[in-house]
């Protein structure tokens, strides 16, 4: 940013879009989101309609992105599968944030609970993500809700840790003491004075968790322990396509592209948000 631009401070959106990659990522992600949401309207075919004649048909003609081993249209399946994958990603980001915020605030605010809560959080973060998720799904059973619950348990500690650290900083600020001195209740201070001041790091982390959760879901589905196999997700599509990798590589190529592009976009958006929400970095852009 040039020196003259420092005079009038850039707004949040200008700071966010100062990086071309963030703007492009956001547009691409919104396009993916729109396509997935509008799947019933724009999908060229029924995602579960089989046609033995066209099994493993190459991309082009009636099947833009080809057909799978049962002759189902890959593009349509991709769109419908996206609904599941994005719902899981978004659901995990929300649930993990809420759970993480509760635990983080409690740990940061009540010193007595800090030890126990923080140790549990540390213990959970010591597990490899995917292993913990597999174990939890194995216990809970494979459905979309259970995958969301399992992955939220896996990722909530990350939010909790950030919320706790930020809470410890904010709660020592004089305005928190002033609020206490003027009769505010602890609950009110936690929500209005502390939580409101740490929203930015939570949003950034939630964006990353959205991406991680989509990857993890794909991983679980690929391993066959995710959502019920009859529900298409990008992970199950890759898993099914795996057997035909030498005859029809496009079966794993397109869902793979869908996952990588979505995750990459989310990561870049997260990076952009982090920089735009941090007043120190935003000014140096």
């Amino acid at each position: 940013m040039s020196a003259s631009a420092l005079a009038d401070e850039p707004g949040f959106l200008e700071a966010l879009f100062a990086r071309r990659a963030v703007l492009v990522s956001l547009i691409v992600f919104l396009v993916i989101l729109a396509a997935v949401i509008l799947a019933p309207l724009i999908a060229p075919a029924d995602p579960s309609a089989m046609s033995v004649r066209n099994r493993l048909a190459a991309p082009g003609g009636d099947y833009w992105l080809g057909a799978d081993a049962f002759g189902r249209d890959v593009l349509s399946r991709l769109l419908y599968a996206g609904q599941v994958s994005l719902t899981i990603g978004c659901g995990v980001a929300l649930v993990a944030s809420v759970v993480g915020i509760v635990f983080g605030l409690v740990a940061g605010f009540f010193r007595r609970l800090d030890g126990p809560v923080s140790r549990i959080v540390d213990a959970m973060m010591a597990f490899p993500d995917i292993l913990l998720a597999i174990a939890l799904v194995a216990i809970l059973g494979g459905s979309m809700i259970n995958v969301i619950i399992a992955l939220s348990i896996v990722y909530a500690p990350r939010i909790a840790r950030i919320v706790r650290a930020s809470t410890l900083v904010i709660r020592e600020l004089p305005f928190v003491e002033a609020a206490q001195a003027l009769g505010s209740s602890t609950g009110f201070i936690m929500i209005n004075h502390v939580l409101r001041n740490i929203v930015s790091p939570i949003i950034v982390q939630a964006t990353f968790i959205f991406a991680y959760a989509m990857l993890a879901e794909a991983g679980l589905s690929f391993l066959g322990v995710g959502v019920d196999p009859s529900t298409p997700t990008w992970g199950t599509m890759i898993n099914e396509g795996r057997q035909y990798i030498d005859q029809a590589a496009f079966l794993i190529f397109f869902p793979g592209i869908a996952i990588s592009v979505s995750v990459l976009c989310l990561q870049l958006i997260g990076d952009g948000l982090r920089d735009a929400l941090d007043p120190r970095i935003a000014k140096e852009l």
């Binding site: 004089p174 305005f175 002033a178 206490q180 003027l182 009769g183 409101r196 001041n197």
Partner: peptide
């Protein structure tokens, strides 16, 4: 606190919530 006994502090810069 606040209603009967109120308190003002040394640091007016940081005793208010910036948000």
């Amino acid at each position: 606190r606040g209603a009967e006994i109120a308190m003002i502090f040394q640091e007016p810069m940081s005793s208010l919530n910036p948000l």
